[in-house]
């Protein structure tokens, strides 16, 4: 699914990352705990989170995650968006809850969790 389709599926607002609108994303990860993102994410995913602080952008950057969606109507402050922009990332804000945002993306065709094997 392309980033532009993620934006429309989530009825979201793209805060930065126009250049990535045609990037293809196959997997998604929903998490508010950044240590879990670092522990489990393996593939290139879209990260859905309700965690609005610089650590979400930094974690995504370190994990080569190019697209971050802030759920539950949360809008990151300008300096966070600027940091994402400097890192070449796309940032999307959606009014949907984590559950509904993940569900809408799953229904629209993103079925991969993008994680390492979890035992």
């Amino acid at each position: 699914m392309k980033v532009r389709d993620i934006v429309s599926t989530l009825e979201g607002v793209l805060l930065t990352g126009e250049a990535l609108l045609d990037l293809d994303i196959q997997a998604a990860c929903g998490a508010d705990l950044m240590s879990d993102v670092m522990a489990f994410v393996k593939e290139n995913v879209v990260l859905l989170t309700g965690l609005v602080n610089p650590q979400s952008i930094r974690t995504a950057d370190l994990m080569d995650i190019k697209v971050v969606v802030f759920v539950r109507g949360k809008v990151p402050p300008k300096d966070m968006v600027a940091e994402a922009e400097r890192n070449g990332m796309a940032v999307i804000a959606t009014k949907y809850s984590m559950f509904l945002a993940c569900g809408r993306l799953y229904e629209a065709g993103i079925h991969g969790g993008g994680t390492r094997d979890i035992r």
Binding site: D32, M34, S35, D36, M38, A39, L51, Q55
Partner: peptide, 15 residues
């Protein structure tokens, strides 16, 4: 509340 402090840090480093 900042997304850390869940006891994953050292295990993540080891892994």
């Amino acid at each position: 509340e900042m997304g850390f402090g869940a006891g994953m840090g050292l295990p993540n480093m080891k892994r």
